[in-house]
Amino acid sequence: MMAVLTERQRAILQAVVENYIRSAEPVGSRTIARLTGLNLSPATIRNEMADLEAMGYLEQPHTSAGRIPSYKGYRYYVDHLLTPEAIDRAWVEALERRFYARSVAIEEALRKTAAILAELTHYAVVALGPEVFTARLVKLEFVPLDEARAVTVLVTDTGHVEHKVVELPQGLSAEDLAHLVERINAELKGAAISTLAPKIHRLLAQAMESNREALFRAERFFEALLHPREEARLIVDGTTEIIAQPEFRSVDRVRELLKLFEAEEPLFTVLRQVEDGVQVHIGLEDVLGLGSPLSLVTATLTVGEGQRTTIGIIGPPRMDYAKAIGLLSALSFIFDAWRERGLG
């Protein structure tokens, strides 16, 4: 249970957290006296900082050093003292234009967004990629190129768009295949991608019962078209940004962090379990099996009917929570508006 802090203690705790976020150096009483405008002597501030340390909100890494926030101190700051940073409207409008200017698939939008957030925050950004095998068929398009080849376009309700140049199966003309594509769109629209194989078999068997050899080739052809590439489950950007943070100067810490991003499964599990809205997770190293302390700020984004994903900014506990929360809140607004306008 959080202790009740006085207004003076709240102001000092906020000053310690925000100065430590900026400097990455322990914060002393003279710095607080100079920057807070509290009109208190350094001695008085030292006494209050000692009380905050006794209550578990601050820590003193070395006897002669100033204080740094504890996890409890960060949590109190995020829950009670932080004001999310106001995001430059020009940035929001630029991101909106990038999405609205042309058709943008969900994967592309998430990758672009992750890259932008990493550049703005100087932390790593992770996002769940759309789970294409739980998606539903929106449409299959078929455009003949010549007598032997065609371009196909698979569109799912997650916004996944996949183009393929394919060889036409022997014994089936482009006209025959175009007719079958029309039937698939008419009868299988809305079906889960993972359930299409038996449905295609039944549909083709009805349409081609007199030609068993052509039926076999058509089945193989359409099953290949309607089986999308397995996308990476986790989108990661900004690894070079986060390892430039002072907390990761050690080679061992950098190696450990890079292994985390390569393994994917621990982060994937955490992202799948986060609650809706913008959430702050402080001190995830035990959950992720790391020696290096980490924090994660996440937002859930609605990217289609019944389809959601999660994006997170990951950094040291000394991360700029006000900026991260402000950016993800603005991003949620952008994705909501984008979805309402038809997702590309």
Rank of each mutant, 00 (worst) to 15 (best):
M1E: 15
Q14H: 15
A15P: 08
V17W: 06
R34V: 13
T36Y: 00
G37W: 03
D51E: 13
E53Q: 11
Q60G: 04
P61V: 09
S64A: 13
I68C: 01
P69Q: 02
Y71V: 13
K72V: 09
L81A: 06
T83C: 11
E85G: 10
A86F: 05
W91D: 12
V92F: 12
V92A: 13
T113C: 00
I116Y: 12
E119L: 14
V125K: 01
G129M: 02
A135L: 06
V151T: 15
L154D: 00
P169D: 09
Q170R: 15
L172D: 03
S173D: 07
D176N: 12
L188G: 02
A191I: 05
I193W: 02
S194V: 08
K199R: 14
K199G: 06
H201F: 07
A207D: 07
A207N: 13
E209I: 04
E209T: 13
N211E: 06
R212S: 09
R217G: 03
L225Q: 10
L225S: 08
P228S: 05
E231R: 04
D237M: 07
I243K: 05
E247V: 15
F248E: 10
R249C: 03
D252H: 11
R253I: 00
V274P: 09
G283Y: 04
V287N: 01
L288Y: 02
L288Q: 00
L294R: 03
V297Y: 03
A299E: 14
A299R: 15
T302V: 14
E305L: 13
Y321H: 11
I325S: 00
F333L: 12
D336L: 10
R339E: 04
